[in-house]
């Protein structure tokens, strides 16, 4: 509460003294936490290694040039795998995300209980990173592209379904009512009243997620789930730094191209 101190003429303070003290207390607590955490990190770090991080980086950097261009012959297949993992994973995710989204949207859900289940699916898919999904799936169905694709798919369902169901909830209800008034069935109301309104979002979300998935699928190989990450892991383990740099270049190129494509597609839709 602002307080007016009349004895010394008109003065104004934003906070009362008590509130000011509280604010200072919060600052104190915050600072103590930061200091404590810093000490913890400091204890667990071997500073001897950090000290020469600069020289190490320069050293590895110098060993990375020139990238081993001839290694490209062995990279085409993994790059192709990576793109397939991302693409097929995204398609699987979209196919599952559509019914989940309709079940999760307030205005289209058949039943509140089904809505809860759909929301639960969305949250659980989103809360697990695709690398962790991959780790689990490699155990279940063995290493390889299949595990990677399913991991990407599982991770993307939540993302796509969430954006989609938010779009479904924001549609113009009048258009649906007009279709309803013609005697159309519920399925037809969805087809004519809702789908046209959310189609742009659907396509936009699809390419956006595909673009993200290209990036995510490049690292899935680290846990054995196929794609270019497998080569990356192998090259780092064998200290083949010129191969590592080549792989990084290829990943960079792939990501740039996918981003370009997704930007083009999204531009075309809107």
């Amino acid at each position: 509460m602002p307080k007016i101190d009349r004895s010394s003429g008109l003065s104004w303070r934003k906070h009362t003294t008590k509130k000011e003290l509280t604010i200072w207390l919060y600052w104190l607590i915050g600072l103590s936490i930061v200091t404590y955490a810093w000490n913890l990190i400091s204890e667990k770090t071997i500073w001897f290694f950090v000290q020469d991080a600069g020289t190490q980086a320069i050293d590895i950097g110098s060993r990375m040039v020139p990238p081993k261009l001839s290694y490209m012959d062995k990279l085409w297949q993994p790059v192709w795998d990576t793109i397939n993992i991302a693409t097929i994973g995204t398609i699987i995710a979209l196919i599952i995300a559509v019914p989940v989204a309709f079940a999760a949207a307030k205005n289209t859900t058949p039943h509140p209980l089904i809505r809860t289940i759909a929301l639960f699916i969305i949250v659980s898919s989103r809360s697990v990173n695709s690398l962790i999904w991959a780790l689990i799936l490699v155990f279940i169905c063995g290493p390889g592209i299949f595990a990677g694709t399913i991991a990407i798919g599982l991770r993307s369902i939540g993302f796509c379904a969430k954006l989609l169901y938010e779009a479904i909830e924001e549609i113009d209800h009048n258009q649906v009512e007009a279709i309803q008034a013609t005697g159309a069935s519920r399925a037809q109301q969805m087809l004519y009243g809702i789908v046209p309104q959310v189609l742009p979002t659907f396509a936009g979300v699809g390419v956006y997620r595909w673009d993200i998935n290209i990036r995510e699928s490049t690292i899935l190989g680290l846990v054995g789930a196929g794609g270019i990450g497998l080569q990356l892991n192998g090259s780092i383990n064998t200290l083949a730094w010129t191969q590592v740099s080549m792989i990084l270049l290829v990943i960079l190129g792939t990501v740039i191209i996918s981003e370009w494509i997704s930007a083009k597609v999204r531009h075309a839709i809107i």
């Binding site: 009048n174 258009q175 007009a178 004519y192 009243g193 046209p196």
Partner: peptide, 9 residues
């Protein structure tokens, strides 16, 4: 309808 309520797209 007042606002036509056509399916815009």
């Amino acid at each position: 309808f007042q606002e036509y309520a056509l399916v815009e797209r």
